[in-house]
Amino acid sequence: MIWPVDLIIMVLVMICGIGAIMVRDLLGAAILFGAYSFMMCLLWAIMGAVDVAFTEASVGAGVSAVFFVAAVFRTSRRTKD
């Protein structure tokens, strides 16, 4: 495990996670959530859990981002709070 890579990805995970909550635009939140999932997938891969990383990449970063975008398009794009 290379610790600078680990640290950079960890910081990116936190930025993406906090950004997905804070951002007003729900489409942007969906994209940030996809990025968060992808960074988590990298973390799993670094820790040697390749099966979990594979699942995270296909489910979290792939299909669920599409579901979020579809839900945003069918409802509203801006949050009330």
Binding site: A53, F54, T55
Partner: peptide
């Protein structure tokens, strides 16, 4: 790595 879940998704 892989299996039913990943392949199905």
């Amino acid at each position: 790595p892989g299996g039913g879940f990943q392949g199905g998704v």
